[in-house]
Design a binder for these strands. Structure first.
Lengths: 219, 219
DNA sequence: AACAAAAATTTGGTATACCAAATGAGATAA
DNA sequence: TTATCTCATTTGGTATACCAAATTTTTGTT
């Protein structure tokens, strides 16, 4: 783990800080300050910031400090729309092209998640959740699709995290994951896509609730 | 135009060189050499290379020179698969959400392309082709989808360029664009998606031919 | 006191210097 | 002659220094 490239390590650290809210939306990320904080130079810090910008977690502004992204409801729901298109395609292709080994491995991942539920850090749990969905994408045997999907899941991470800590939907998520896995193991494209659709609709609803109550909070 | 950020300018220059074949697939892009060539320092050159890496045009290798990407047929066809998923969604949403103004503007773009055909640099013409498809994506009013789609179109640029210069399919492409535009102006989702599907299937066939004849060349 | 101009400071952009890993050439031993 | 070891060179990774645009603070004038 320690042999990972420095900019990636920095990006990991910043990413967690953003997701935990240590770095609040709208807050500036000054190259110099954060570089000295983490005891690295500006060069890898710059690269780390670009990585996060690519993921959509920070916003680059010409000749200004990058800031932590603060996506509107429209942006989130637009992103979920795209994620849905990608995941549905992933589901269909995964049923077709996954090896039996893939399915067994992903089943094991799900079992592991069930074990960990409530026992580990919420962010770590989200990491597992993400990996579950990414593993299905990889099982399509379409590397480009998997990569694109993974970039998107990362991008949505914060929104999903926020909607999840607001209202504990872990039981429902678990059930939906089981539905997806059931369809997957039977290579039932139709049920697989239906389950994925339900899963993402629920996400959209969760996010909608969160933004609605946030608007209330302002009154 | 000249006020664009330096790394972007460098990326533009390198991108064209890659597409024209001045920088051949597999060739190394040494930071230092290319930086001195373009009379800039390594820092913005590095960033430019990262931009192209994000677009999939160059490959980063840890502690090694980046090289110009040399995608296999599998990679290209995988990418077309994703592009198809995105464009079909774009087509459907564009029919639903485009303003009349959007449609008129895109129609004008197509007319302009018809005028330019054969009169301008092939790469410039491809730029127009790309902008046509990107404009449709923007007409969905889903900024995230448009952005994702645009990233993908850029990524496919070289493959499309190569398949097009190998076999002149401009007449067919023109006809297909007209079909798409016709369906779009009538907001006919079904025909729009069908036309887009045909357009991309043709692309896949073109690419397949190109790779097949390349394999022959080796014998 | 209020506004304007200018100087000082902050901060991202760029250039350069240094380092360490990787590569390749040349020498030496089997 | 071949294989291997060593050392020089190449090259990406990182740190630092410098610059210019933007921001803030200060100062001077009305």
């Amino acid at each position: 783990m320690t042999d990972k490239a420095l900019p990636d390590q920095i990006a990991d650290k910043l990413r967690r800080d953003i997701l935990k809210g240590v770095l609040a939306p709208g807050q500036q990320i000054k190259e110099r300050d954060h570089a000295t904080d983490l005891d690295v130079s500006r060069t890898p810090m710059r690269e780390a910031i670009r990585i996060l910008a690519k993921e959509g977690l920070v916003l680059l502004r010409p000749s200004r400090s990058p800031i932590v992204a603060d996506p509107s409801y429209e942006e989130i729901s637009d992103a979920i729309e795209v994620l849905t298109a990608l995941e549905l395609r992933c589901g269909a292709l995964a049923c077709k092209h996954a090896t039996d080994d893939d399915i067994a491995r992903i089943q094991a991942m799900q079992d592991h998640m069930d074990d960990c539920q409530g026992k580990i850090d919420r962010i770590d749990f989200f990491e597992l959740d993400m990996q579950f969905h990414m593993a299905i994408a990889e099982a399509t045997q379409n590397a480009v699709l998997a990569e694109t999907h993974s970039a998107f899941v990362r991008r949505m991470w914060r929104a999903r995290y926020l909607s999840a800590i607001r209202k504990d939907s872990s039981a429902r998520v678990k059930r939906q994951h089981h539905d997806i896995m059931q369809a997957f193991s039977e290579r039932d494209v139709y049920r697989m896509c239906a389950s994925i659709g339900i899963h993402l609709d629920a996400l959209l609803e969760n996010v909608k609730d969160k933004y609605a109550s946030e608007t209330e909070d302002l009154q």
